[in-house]
Design a protein around this nucleic acid. Sequence first.
DNA 1: GAAGATTGACGATTCAATCTTC
DNA 2: GAAGATTGAATCGTCAATCTTC
Lengths: 152, 152
Amino acid sequence: MKKVTARSPRKAGRTRPAATDQVMFSLLAAAHSVEQRLEAAMEEVGLSSAKFSALTHLVGAGEALSLSECAKLMTCVRSNITQLMDRLEAEGLVKRVDDPNDRRGVRASLTPLGIERQAAGAKQLAEVQKQFAKTLAGADHDALARVLAAMR
Amino acid sequence: MKKVTARSPRKAGRTRPAATDQVMFSLLAAAHSVEQRLEAAMEEVGLSSAKFSALTHLVGAGEALSLSECAKLMTCVRSNITQLMDRLEAEGLVKRVDDPNDRRGVRASLTPLGIERQAAGAKQLAEVQKQFAKTLAGADHDALARVLAAMR
DNA sequence: GAAGATTGACGATTCAATCTTC
DNA sequence: GAAGATTGAATCGTCAATCTTC
Protein backbone atom coordinates (compact mmCIF):
# COMPACT_ATOMS: atom_id res chain seq x y z
CA MET A 1 0.00 0.00 0.00
CA LYS A 2 0.98 3.58 0.17
CA LYS A 3 0.30 7.22 0.67
CA VAL A 4 -3.29 8.03 -0.33
CA THR A 5 -2.56 11.73 -0.42
CA ALA A 6 -5.65 13.81 0.05
CA ARG A 7 -6.11 17.23 -1.40
CA SER A 8 -5.57 19.84 1.27
CA PRO A 9 -8.17 22.56 0.81
CA ARG A 10 -6.13 25.01 2.81
CA LYS A 11 -8.05 28.24 2.89
CA ALA A 12 -5.55 31.07 2.35
CA GLY A 13 -4.65 32.21 5.86
CA ARG A 14 -5.74 29.01 7.57
CA THR A 15 -2.87 27.27 9.29
CA ARG A 16 -4.78 25.89 12.19
CA PRO A 17 -6.12 22.48 13.08
CA ALA A 18 -5.79 20.02 10.27
CA ALA A 19 -9.35 19.94 9.05
CA THR A 20 -10.83 17.24 11.22
CA ASP A 21 -11.33 15.08 8.12
CA GLN A 22 -7.67 15.25 7.36
CA VAL A 23 -6.30 13.96 10.63
CA MET A 24 -6.32 10.42 9.33
CA PHE A 25 -4.32 11.48 6.31
CA SER A 26 -1.93 13.40 8.50
CA LEU A 27 -1.33 10.24 10.45
CA LEU A 28 -0.62 8.29 7.28
CA ALA A 29 1.63 11.02 5.93
CA ALA A 30 3.59 11.23 9.17
CA ALA A 31 4.12 7.50 9.26
CA HIS A 32 5.10 7.51 5.64
CA SER A 33 7.71 10.13 6.30
CA VAL A 34 9.14 8.17 9.20
CA GLU A 35 9.24 5.04 7.08
CA GLN A 36 11.14 6.90 4.40
CA ARG A 37 13.74 8.07 6.88
CA LEU A 38 14.03 4.61 8.33
CA GLU A 39 14.41 3.01 4.94
CA ALA A 40 17.06 5.51 3.96
CA ALA A 41 18.97 4.90 7.18
CA MET A 42 18.90 1.17 6.62
CA GLU A 43 20.05 1.55 3.07
CA GLU A 44 23.20 3.24 4.35
CA VAL A 45 24.27 -0.07 5.82
CA GLY A 46 23.03 -2.22 2.97
CA LEU A 47 19.74 -3.23 4.53
CA SER A 48 16.03 -2.62 4.16
CA SER A 49 13.42 -2.54 6.88
CA ALA A 50 12.27 -6.01 5.95
CA LYS A 51 15.76 -7.46 6.04
CA PHE A 52 16.59 -5.70 9.28
CA SER A 53 13.40 -6.94 10.86
CA ALA A 54 14.18 -10.53 9.96
CA LEU A 55 17.76 -10.29 11.19
CA THR A 56 16.61 -8.67 14.42
CA HIS A 57 14.18 -11.44 15.16
CA LEU A 58 16.89 -14.00 14.57
CA VAL A 59 19.30 -12.17 16.83
CA GLY A 60 16.63 -11.85 19.48
CA ALA A 61 15.84 -15.54 19.33
CA GLY A 62 19.48 -16.40 19.78
CA GLU A 63 19.10 -19.48 17.62
CA ALA A 64 18.03 -20.60 14.18
CA LEU A 65 14.33 -20.16 13.57
CA SER A 66 12.06 -22.06 11.24
CA LEU A 67 10.69 -20.00 8.40
CA SER A 68 7.21 -20.44 9.77
CA GLU A 69 8.29 -19.03 13.10
CA CYS A 70 9.81 -16.07 11.29
CA ALA A 71 6.58 -15.53 9.41
CA LYS A 72 4.65 -15.57 12.66
CA LEU A 73 7.03 -13.10 14.31
CA MET A 74 6.92 -10.76 11.36
CA THR A 75 3.19 -11.26 10.95
CA CYS A 76 3.42 -11.98 7.30
CA VAL A 77 2.75 -14.84 4.98
CA ARG A 78 5.14 -17.77 4.66
CA SER A 79 5.91 -17.21 1.01
CA ASN A 80 7.09 -13.76 1.87
CA ILE A 81 9.70 -15.19 4.21
CA THR A 82 10.80 -17.70 1.64
CA GLN A 83 11.71 -14.91 -0.75
CA LEU A 84 13.11 -12.59 1.89
CA MET A 85 15.39 -15.41 3.03
CA ASP A 86 16.39 -16.00 -0.58
CA ARG A 87 17.67 -12.44 -0.71
CA LEU A 88 19.29 -12.56 2.71
CA GLU A 89 20.95 -15.82 1.85
CA ALA A 90 22.16 -14.48 -1.48
CA GLU A 91 23.86 -11.68 0.44
CA GLY A 92 25.36 -14.11 2.90
CA LEU A 93 23.52 -12.75 5.92
CA VAL A 94 21.69 -15.95 6.79
CA LYS A 95 22.01 -19.59 5.87
CA ARG A 96 19.27 -22.15 5.52
CA VAL A 97 19.89 -25.24 7.59
CA ASP A 98 17.87 -28.43 7.69
CA ASP A 99 15.73 -28.95 10.72
CA PRO A 100 17.09 -32.07 12.41
CA ASN A 101 13.75 -32.90 14.03
CA ASP A 102 11.43 -32.34 11.13
CA ARG A 103 12.47 -33.18 7.63
CA ARG A 104 9.89 -30.76 6.23
CA GLY A 105 11.32 -27.82 8.12
CA VAL A 106 14.03 -25.36 7.20
CA ARG A 107 15.61 -23.05 9.74
CA ALA A 108 17.22 -19.70 9.13
CA SER A 109 20.59 -19.34 10.78
CA LEU A 110 22.52 -16.07 11.12
CA THR A 111 25.98 -15.84 9.63
CA PRO A 112 28.67 -13.72 11.32
CA LEU A 113 28.11 -11.16 8.60
CA GLY A 114 24.39 -11.23 9.34
CA ILE A 115 25.00 -10.54 13.01
CA GLU A 116 27.34 -7.71 12.17
CA ARG A 117 24.89 -6.23 9.71
CA GLN A 118 22.06 -6.41 12.21
CA ALA A 119 24.16 -4.47 14.70
CA ALA A 120 24.82 -1.82 12.10
CA GLY A 121 21.10 -1.66 11.40
CA ALA A 122 20.31 -1.32 15.08
CA LYS A 123 22.64 1.64 15.29
CA GLN A 124 20.88 3.25 12.36
CA LEU A 125 17.52 2.60 13.93
CA ALA A 126 18.63 4.20 17.20
CA GLU A 127 19.72 7.24 15.27
CA VAL A 128 16.35 7.56 13.57
CA GLN A 129 14.55 7.15 16.85
CA LYS A 130 16.70 9.80 18.45
CA GLN A 131 15.91 12.11 15.58
CA PHE A 132 12.25 11.30 15.90
CA ALA A 133 12.21 12.05 19.61
CA LYS A 134 14.01 15.31 19.02
CA THR A 135 11.44 16.34 16.42
CA LEU A 136 8.69 16.00 18.99
CA ALA A 137 8.69 18.32 21.94
CA GLY A 138 8.44 16.47 25.21
CA ALA A 139 4.80 17.28 25.71
CA ASP A 140 3.89 16.35 22.17
CA HIS A 141 5.72 13.10 22.59
CA ASP A 142 3.65 12.13 25.59
CA ALA A 143 0.45 13.32 23.98
CA LEU A 144 1.16 11.24 20.91
CA ALA A 145 1.92 8.20 23.00
CA ARG A 146 -1.34 8.59 24.88
CA VAL A 147 -3.44 9.07 21.79
CA LEU A 148 -1.89 6.16 19.95
CA ALA A 149 -2.38 3.94 22.99
CA ALA A 150 -6.03 4.96 23.04
CA MET A 151 -6.60 3.98 19.44
CA ARG A 152 -4.70 0.70 19.51
CA MET B 1 8.38 -0.99 2.83
CA LYS B 2 6.37 -2.11 5.78
CA LYS B 3 5.80 -2.67 9.41
CA VAL B 4 9.12 -2.94 11.25
CA THR B 5 7.51 -4.52 14.25
CA ALA B 6 9.52 -3.99 17.39
CA ARG B 7 9.49 -6.32 20.31
CA SER B 8 7.32 -4.88 23.03
CA PRO B 9 9.03 -5.52 26.37
CA ARG B 10 5.81 -5.05 28.24
CA LYS B 11 6.57 -5.54 31.89
CA ALA B 12 3.80 -7.64 33.41
CA GLY B 13 1.34 -5.15 34.82
CA ARG B 14 2.56 -2.21 32.75
CA THR B 15 -0.12 -0.78 30.53
CA ARG B 16 1.00 2.78 30.68
CA PRO B 17 2.79 5.09 28.34
CA ALA B 18 4.23 3.21 25.40
CA ALA B 19 7.87 3.07 26.41
CA THR B 20 9.18 6.31 25.03
CA ASP B 21 11.32 4.37 22.57
CA GLN B 22 8.26 2.67 21.20
CA VAL B 23 6.23 5.71 20.31
CA MET B 24 7.67 5.75 16.82
CA PHE B 25 6.69 2.14 16.32
CA SER B 26 3.24 2.83 17.70
CA LEU B 27 2.86 5.52 15.11
CA LEU B 28 3.89 3.16 12.35
CA ALA B 29 1.64 0.41 13.65
CA ALA B 30 -1.34 2.72 13.90
CA ALA B 31 -0.85 3.95 10.38
CA HIS B 32 -0.40 0.42 9.17
CA SER B 33 -3.66 -0.58 10.74
CA VAL B 34 -5.49 2.32 9.14
CA GLU B 35 -3.98 1.46 5.77
CA GLN B 36 -5.17 -2.11 6.12
CA ARG B 37 -8.70 -0.98 6.81
CA LEU B 38 -8.59 1.44 3.92
CA GLU B 39 -7.26 -1.16 1.55
CA ALA B 40 -9.94 -3.62 2.62
CA ALA B 41 -12.65 -1.01 2.15
CA MET B 42 -11.41 -0.20 -1.33
CA GLU B 43 -11.23 -3.83 -2.25
CA GLU B 44 -14.95 -4.11 -1.56
CA VAL B 45 -15.60 -1.92 -4.58
CA GLY B 46 -12.89 -3.42 -6.75
CA LEU B 47 -10.25 -0.77 -6.10
CA SER B 48 -6.97 -0.33 -4.30
CA SER B 49 -5.64 2.79 -2.63
CA ALA B 50 -3.37 3.46 -5.55
CA LYS B 51 -6.15 3.11 -8.10
CA PHE B 52 -8.53 5.19 -6.03
CA SER B 53 -5.93 7.89 -5.63
CA ALA B 54 -5.35 8.12 -9.36
CA LEU B 55 -9.06 8.19 -10.12
CA THR B 56 -9.64 10.83 -7.47
CA HIS B 57 -7.01 13.11 -8.89
CA LEU B 58 -8.55 12.75 -12.32
CA VAL B 59 -12.01 13.51 -11.00
CA GLY B 60 -10.65 16.46 -9.09
CA ALA B 61 -8.92 17.84 -12.15
CA GLY B 62 -12.12 17.63 -14.14
CA GLU B 63 -10.19 16.84 -17.29
CA ALA B 64 -7.70 14.43 -18.75
CA LEU B 65 -4.27 14.71 -17.15
CA SER B 66 -0.91 13.88 -18.61
CA LEU B 67 0.80 10.96 -16.96
CA SER B 68 3.55 13.27 -15.75
CA GLU B 69 0.99 15.45 -14.05
CA CYS B 70 -0.47 12.39 -12.39
CA ALA B 71 2.96 11.37 -11.21
CA LYS B 72 3.51 14.79 -9.74
CA LEU B 73 0.14 14.78 -7.97
CA MET B 74 0.70 11.33 -6.56
CA THR B 75 4.32 12.12 -5.77
CA CYS B 76 5.61 9.02 -7.39
CA VAL B 77 7.81 8.11 -10.28
CA ARG B 78 6.56 8.28 -13.86
CA SER B 79 7.04 4.60 -14.57
CA ASN B 80 4.79 3.83 -11.66
CA ILE B 81 1.97 5.74 -13.32
CA THR B 82 2.57 4.02 -16.61
CA GLN B 83 1.90 0.67 -15.01
CA LEU B 84 -0.93 1.87 -12.80
CA MET B 85 -2.64 3.28 -15.88
CA ASP B 86 -2.07 -0.02 -17.65
CA ARG B 87 -4.09 -1.74 -14.95
CA LEU B 88 -6.76 0.96 -14.80
CA GLU B 89 -7.09 0.90 -18.56
CA ALA B 90 -7.31 -2.89 -18.60
CA GLU B 91 -10.25 -2.58 -16.21
CA GLY B 92 -11.86 0.07 -18.35
CA LEU B 93 -11.65 2.80 -15.71
CA VAL B 94 -9.51 5.19 -17.72
CA LYS B 95 -8.52 5.55 -21.33
CA ARG B 96 -5.27 6.86 -22.74
CA VAL B 97 -5.77 9.66 -25.21
CA ASP B 98 -3.17 11.40 -27.30
CA ASP B 99 -2.22 14.87 -26.26
CA PRO B 100 -3.26 17.15 -29.12
CA ASN B 101 -0.64 19.77 -28.27
CA ASP B 102 2.36 17.59 -27.63
CA ARG B 103 2.93 14.47 -29.64
CA ARG B 104 5.12 13.03 -26.87
CA GLY B 105 2.38 13.29 -24.31
CA VAL B 106 -0.35 10.88 -23.29
CA ARG B 107 -3.27 11.92 -21.16
CA ALA B 108 -5.38 9.76 -18.89
CA SER B 109 -9.10 10.25 -19.38
CA LEU B 110 -11.77 8.90 -17.07
CA THR B 111 -14.41 6.56 -18.47
CA PRO B 112 -17.96 6.64 -17.12
CA LEU B 113 -17.16 3.44 -15.27
CA GLY B 114 -14.09 5.11 -13.82
CA ILE B 115 -16.14 8.00 -12.52
CA GLU B 116 -18.66 5.65 -11.03
CA ARG B 117 -15.97 3.56 -9.41
CA GLN B 118 -14.30 6.62 -7.93
CA ALA B 119 -17.59 7.62 -6.36
CA ALA B 120 -17.91 4.19 -4.82
CA GLY B 121 -14.37 4.48 -3.50
CA ALA B 122 -15.11 7.89 -2.03
CA LYS B 123 -18.04 6.42 -0.17
CA GLN B 124 -15.83 3.70 1.23
CA LEU B 125 -13.23 6.25 2.24
CA ALA B 126 -15.83 8.33 4.05
CA GLU B 127 -16.89 5.25 5.94
CA VAL B 128 -13.33 4.51 7.04
CA GLN B 129 -12.83 8.10 8.10
CA LYS B 130 -16.03 8.04 10.09
CA GLN B 131 -14.87 4.88 11.77
CA PHE B 132 -11.50 6.44 12.43
CA ALA B 133 -13.04 9.53 14.01
CA LYS B 134 -15.28 7.40 16.15
CA THR B 135 -12.30 5.41 17.41
CA LEU B 136 -10.71 8.58 18.70
CA ALA B 137 -12.39 10.41 21.49
CA GLY B 138 -12.91 14.08 20.68
CA ALA B 139 -10.04 15.24 22.84
CA ASP B 140 -7.69 12.63 21.49
CA HIS B 141 -8.64 13.63 18.01
CA ASP B 142 -7.62 17.22 18.60
CA ALA B 143 -4.48 16.21 20.43
CA LEU B 144 -3.44 13.97 17.59
CA ALA B 145 -4.08 16.69 15.06
CA ARG B 146 -1.94 19.11 17.02
CA VAL B 147 0.93 16.71 17.49
CA LEU B 148 0.97 15.64 13.87
CA ALA B 149 0.91 19.26 12.78
CA ALA B 150 3.89 19.94 15.03
CA MET B 151 5.95 17.15 13.51
CA ARG B 152 5.16 17.85 9.88
C1' DG C 1 20.04 18.27 -24.81
C1' DA C 2 15.69 17.90 -21.99
C1' DA C 3 11.02 16.26 -21.34
C1' DG C 4 7.30 12.56 -21.85
C1' DA C 5 6.48 7.89 -21.70
C1' DT C 6 7.69 3.17 -21.83
C1' DT C 7 10.32 -1.03 -20.75
C1' DG C 8 12.91 -4.16 -17.88
C1' DA C 9 14.68 -5.33 -13.60
C1' DC C 10 14.25 -5.75 -8.65
C1' DG C 11 12.20 -5.35 -3.64
C1' DA C 12 8.37 -6.32 -0.85
C1' DT C 13 4.06 -7.88 -0.24
C1' DT C 14 -0.16 -10.88 -1.08
C1' DC C 15 -2.69 -15.03 -2.82
C1' DA C 16 -3.44 -19.70 -4.80
C1' DA C 17 -1.50 -23.93 -6.12
C1' DT C 18 1.86 -27.54 -5.44
C1' DC C 19 5.25 -30.91 -3.13
C1' DT C 20 7.10 -33.17 0.65
C1' DT C 21 6.71 -34.85 4.99
C1' DC C 22 4.29 -35.42 9.26
C1' DG D 1 -5.54 -34.66 5.97
C1' DA D 2 -2.59 -30.88 7.90
C1' DA D 3 1.77 -28.47 8.32
C1' DG D 4 6.25 -26.66 6.23
C1' DA D 5 8.14 -24.66 2.37
C1' DT D 6 8.34 -23.38 -2.34
C1' DT D 7 6.72 -21.61 -6.83
C1' DG D 8 4.10 -18.63 -9.93
C1' DA D 9 1.30 -14.78 -10.70
C1' DA D 10 -0.41 -10.24 -9.24
C1' DT D 11 0.00 -5.33 -7.24
C1' DC D 12 2.66 -1.38 -5.92
C1' DG D 13 6.76 0.85 -5.50
C1' DT D 14 11.77 2.01 -6.95
C1' DC D 15 15.67 2.78 -10.44
C1' DA D 16 18.21 2.68 -14.87
C1' DA D 17 18.02 2.52 -19.65
C1' DT D 18 15.68 3.59 -24.03
C1' DC D 19 12.69 5.95 -27.71
C1' DT D 20 10.25 9.67 -29.43
C1' DT D 21 9.42 14.28 -29.67
C1' DC D 22 10.18 18.93 -28.21
